[in-house]
Amino acid sequence: MNVFRLAGDISHLLAIIILLLKIWTSRSCAGISGKSQVMFAITYTARYLDLFTNFISLYNSTMKIIFLGAAYATLYLIYVRFKATYDHNHDTFRVEFLLIPTVILSVLINHDFSPLEILWTFSIYLESVAILPQLFMVSKTGEAESITSHYLFALGSYRALYIINWVYRYYAEGFYDLIAIVAGVVQTVLYCDFFYLYITKGSRANATEMSIEA
């Protein structure tokens, strides 16, 4: 554990809390891609199955349980509690274009051809592209509420901080995981356009909305 990794985890936690609070307090999930949230739930379910087989630390297990719980709580809010506000007409990204290639890739390129390891690899590949339906939705409607932008910024920061963590770990511990690094870089690159807009447009004093031109 190093400071970059911890900051990344906190940023991830913050993103999840921002999203849950936004939906809960506004009683609406307008502008949120349910498809991205479904893929995040699949991601954490596939990755954290090792909760039952591999104990790393109390911190590690606690965070896993929180991330899993929050992912399913988010799905509940979108698809059950505030279903009427779900903007499915704009959430039109074809998820099979992400699910099928990531399943195939995880079977072909993994560290070990075993069920848990393939599921872990699948979760890494799927997470790297899971935000695409959300980014697609934002570019399609041409705007994101500022709170949705903060969510995306926190989520993107989490991955960017993980990259710094990997650079640190490579030099400090000689540790590196090529699958996680390549997928993590892909994931972070997807946020670059958004980061640019968030920093240049989002910092205006009373900006309440930000536009994303595709």
């Binding site: 990755r47 090792d50 896993k64 991330f67 390891e117 963590n165 996680a180």
Partner: peptide, 10 residues
């Protein structure tokens, strides 16, 4: 190899 694959990140 079991040890090496104990993914310790979230």
């Amino acid at each position: 190899i079991e040890d090496e694959l104990g993914h310790d990140e979230l």
